[in-house]
């Protein structure tokens, strides 16, 4: 008996609807930010309408975007000026397509493989050589981390970013 998989067979038809109804929602603006230049942090700040705080510690610079409801998005920039990781603690579920930028396609592709513990709807993860994405939590307390392993500065354990 397979108890480990959460069935997801109901989704094919709605994707067709999505194609038909894509005009409903505001288009995603310029693709920020993971794997792109540090200037895209400001794109995200404008998109989230948040306040940005910046701190540096030698091998990386951390930009934290804080929102009035307490939500926070952190973007981590390496010495080459590239965003190598993004983490979030938010009330609403963040739009990963905007947050992951060009990396989102890889995320979407890897999502097809169900997790072995998918009977919980409260955690989700993908791990490939080029992209790691962890998502966890529940309504009002979504959290997650995405990073590009090859861009992580030496001496930083990306898994501990929070």
């Amino acid at each position: 008996m397979n108890r480990s998989r959460f069935p997801c067979c109901a989704t094919l038809r709605p994707w067709l609807f999505a194609a038909a109804c894509g005009a409903l929602l505001p288009a995603v603006e310029a693709k920020a930010v993971l794997g792109a230049g540090a200037d895209t942090v400001q794109t995200d700040q404008a998109r989230f309408k948040g306040v940005r705080k910046q701190s540096a510690n030698g091998t990386m610079t951390t930009h934290e975007i804080s929102l009035p409801d307490g939500s926070s998005i952190k973007e981590y920039v390496n010495a080459s000026g590239i965003v190598f990781a993004v983490s979030w603690r938010t009330r609403l579920k963040p739009d990963l397509e905007a947050l992951l930028g060009a990396q989102y396609a890889a995320h979407a592709a890897a999502q097809g493989a169900p997790s072995g513990v998918a009977a919980s709807k409260r955690m989700r993860s993908i791990r490939t050589a080029d992209l790691v994405v962890h998502q966890a939590g529940r309504m009002n307390a979504f959290g997650g981390l995405a990073y590009v392993p090859t861009l992580v500065p030496v001496g930083i354990d990306a898994e501990t970013l929070r």
Binding site: F6, F17, A18
Partner: peptide, 23 residues
């Protein structure tokens, strides 16, 4: 009402709409 594109994206493509998918 068909599921909007943003909702499909939020659900990662898995919209639970039956006893089977909800368990």
């Amino acid at each position: 009402l068909a599921v909007p594109a943003d909702c499909l994206a939020a659900a990662g493509g898995s919209v639970f709409n039956s006893a089977a998918s909800l368990q």
